[in-house]
Design a binder for these strands. Structure first.
Lengths: 114, 114
DNA sequence: CTAACCGGTATCCCGGCGGTAACCACGTCA
DNA sequence: TGACGTGGTTACCGCCGGGATACCGGTTAG
């Protein structure tokens, strides 16, 4: 998921900052903990992940819940608003799937290394 | 069109660089000349517009046609690929129209100045 | 006691985006 | 002859996003 060559990271369509969209997709199937998010988002630093999560929280896209147990445990989950973003994101992904090769070919033809 | 307060410039959804998407929308209803593009895109500098246009051209989104008449005349037009981007952009705009207020409210509630 | 895990924060660095300003070639007009 | 419009290019500069690294407080496992 989200390997460096994945087209989803290369579409001209972006949601918020670099990770905003990917984080939302990671939360699509239920809440995730901080460290669970770092796995699929290969290479994200803790700082950047924290910042993106804070931004998403500020925008009402996700909730942050710290469980008071003895072990530190924080879960992030999508709000209805965040979930509603999945729809246009799906449209963007559909576009990318259909037209990604075209875009790549155009770049190659323009002399840009693939 | 595209005044600084327009939500379209503030959605978390972005297409390419800052202007990529707006340029495509400007070309939606037919070809436009360089200077015609600078009008709706208030405040864009020639440098940035040129760079964005080159990027769009490189990606096969638009064509650049210089007419050989006595006066210098260059027109930019959407390719089918560029036109196909209008679809997910419409989805993004629909989302923004529906949920923009929600996002704003969330930011305000988070103590962020509106 | 020590190490590791969790969920971060603090600091530094770098590259790229975006903006300003100056300049330029070409052609037209007065 | 000079000013002006068109469609740029170039140099410079500031800011911010993103990455790497180090550290930290609390808890638990060995």
């Amino acid at each position: 998921m989200f390997d460096p060559v994945c087209p989803s990271g290369l579409t001209p369509i972006r949601f918020g900052d670099k990770w905003y969209g990917m984080i939302i997709r990671c939360l699509e199937h239920g809440p995730r903990r901080f460290s669970e998010l770092r796995v699929p988002l290969r290479g994200i630093s803790a700082k950047v992940l924290t910042r993106s999560l804070r931004a998403l929280e500020r925008d009402g896209m996700i909730t942050r819940t710290a469980y008071p147990g003895p072990v530190q445990r924080v879960e992030y989950d999508l709000t209805p608003l965040g979930r509603s973003l999945l729809e246009p994101m799906a449209a963007a992904c559909a576009w990318a799937e259909k037209h990604w090769e075209e875009l790549l070919d155009a770049r190659e033809a323009a002399g840009h290394p693939r």
